[in-house]
């Protein structure tokens, strides 16, 4: 039997499409998470009160923030799941090596981020319609007009944030796959740093670094760069790892 030559790009494509079919159930959890987030969002994300003449006035602010934050957590957990035994083993049933397995996982996580971004944006309309139909509030759109450019930037940034969180999850997953000790070390590290940095602004600084930047180009470099570095570390870690069974 003659031997077949192999095209790595083709294998990655095949694995990616295999994953899209095999991992559909991951999106079921996304749907449930987004619906729970919509439920939580009904109580509003903030409130301001004042008085005008003889009247007390309160404005409750609503947004899709909770929906997006929950979707980010979903992306994070989904990435961890992809590194677990159950999911990596399915890769190696057919043609695979650690490079194709990782790259097709990253491609899958990117698509998952795009789907997460689209659904979390649309879920905001579900939230709005529920509120308009059932809540007897005085409405103030009072949202600034967003230009097309701002909208496109916002949408792409939503994808990048989800992708970045999946990159964090993927790295944590690879670390724990490499050594189970990380299951203890990582939470300990997070709680420990929270205690150490209590009162310090480092956590605020980190979130400001990503979330308080109004230049799209700069946000693009930061989020995509961070994701790239995290995925690269994950791939280096998984290099030389045996297929677990």
């Amino acid at each position: 039997m003659s031997l077949n030559n192999v095209d790595i790009k083709r294998v990655i494509r095949q694995q990616f499409s295999y994953k899209c079919k095999a991992n559909t159930s991951l999106f079921t959890s996304m749907i449930v998470i987004q619906l729970i987030a919509v439920l939580f969002s009904l109580s509003g994300t903030g409130m301001i009160g004042t008085s005008i003449g003889y009247n007390g006035v309160s404005i409750q602010f609503y947004s899709g923030d909770i929906v997006l934050v929950f979707t980010m957590i979903w992306a994070f957990i989904t990435a961890i799941m992809l590194t677990t035994k159950t999911y990596t083993e399915t890769d190696y049933v057919f043609v695979a090596n650690h490079l194709t397995s990782n790259l097709s996982n990253i491609a899958f996580l990117f698509v998952a981020s795009v789907i997460g971004a689209i659904t979390s944006l649309l879920a905001v309309y579900l939230l709005k319609v529920v509120m308009l139909l059932f809540f007897d509030h005085g409405w103030m759109a009072a949202s600034q007009e967003i230009s097309v450019g701002q909208w496109v930037s916002g949408f792409l940034t939503t994808i990048f944030y989800l992708f970045m969180f999946s990159a964090i999850g993927y790295l944590i997953g690879q670390l724990t796959q490499r050594n189970k000790l990380f299951i203890v070390i990582i939470p300990a590290f997070i709680i420990g740093s929270l205690v150490i940095f209590v009162g310090s602004t480092i956590l605020m600084d980190i979130s400001q670094f990503y979330f308080n930047d109004s230049s799209f180009f700069s946000v693009f470099i930061k989020t995509v760069g961070t994701s790239f570095i995290l995925f690269l570390i994950s791939m280096v870690l998984s290099n030389g790892q045996e297929v677990r069974k």
Binding site: Y54, S63, L68, L121, A142, Y161
Partner: peptide, 26 residues
């Protein structure tokens, strides 16, 4: 007049959009 409380609701864009429009949640 009798005590009157007015409630209003306002919808804001999700944070990646506010990031560029400069709008604040509150």
């Amino acid at each position: 007049p009798a005590p009157n409380e007015l409630y209003f609701s306002s919808f804001k864009s999700t944070f990646p959009f506010r990031q560029y429009s400069g709008e604040k949640l509150m």
